[in-house]
Design a protein around this nucleic acid. Sequence first.
DNA 1: TAGATTATATCGTAATACGATATATATGCA
DNA 2: TGCATATATATCGTATTACGATATAATCTA
Lengths: 148, 148
Amino acid sequence: MTPEANAREEGTPVRELSSEEYAALAAFRYQLRRFLAFSEAAAGKAGLPPQQHQALLALAGHVGPEPPSVGTLAAQLLIAAHTAAELASRMVEADLLIKTASAQDRRRMTLVLTPKAESVLRRLTVAHLEELRVLEPALVLALGQLNP
Amino acid sequence: MTPEANAREEGTPVRELSSEEYAALAAFRYQLRRFLAFSEAAAGKAGLPPQQHQALLALAGHVGPEPPSVGTLAAQLLIAAHTAAELASRMVEADLLIKTASAQDRRRMTLVLTPKAESVLRRLTVAHLEELRVLEPALVLALGQLNP
DNA sequence: TAGATTATATCGTAATACGATATATATGCA
DNA sequence: TGCATATATATCGTATTACGATATAATCTA
């Protein structure tokens, strides 16, 4: 089966869309990109690849009894476990994470932020909360225009 | 100046953040990723790289007197002009776009969706509008928790 | 009209997510 | 208990793609 055939069976009728509907979805995605571009730029200025910033945030924002592990990272970032393992390795290399084998389950690697990471993440998070206060109205508005 | 020094002057005090604030921002980013993951998966099933899907949407959602060009694409996708040129080339190759030199300004390349692109984009957009109807509450909620 | 500006294009490079695969540890059940 | 299976992490080669540097053509401006 071709990939195209998989999206929806060929020949299945799909309702026509007005150009306003395309414009509304495009506008929403544009707002999303604006935020993501801000975020990537901020991370870059702080010396972090965007995904490493997201990893720090996911770990710092992790709630639950168990401390976060490589698997936690994969689940939060929606990436494959082995991709999370590579990411964590790079971050240990960059002095952002400390990786220790869990005592309960020695397969599991516990991840803890270094002081450097704590400091960078704190500054980035403050900046993001400020920026989102600005962007939120446009984002909510664009969302609201979608399904009138 | 090191990249780190650029984020905010070294030594500038940054307020402490509660773990709830990290969790709230992390939750918002997680919702964003859920939507983006849905979108990338949907595009993939339809046989499109995610960025090509976004390009089609940006072009179809474009409003204004001038027809969209490579520069329009760059502006909407927040990428460099030469990156947009590469993207458009790949899409012409994939029979998604028709590229014609504008009559008024022959530097400018006008971009028009092919019937194949129209069809794929229509299906994808319907699916996205449906999915966003589902995800919107969680997204708005997460946004609301940010700056209480 | 010369020089500056704008729009698009090309090429080499780097970053990173993925598939395939491997290893270690843990768990379940005969 | 011991072995099969499952789970967690790691490694390696590959492919995609955005970028910087640079180039070319068309347009604008003084």
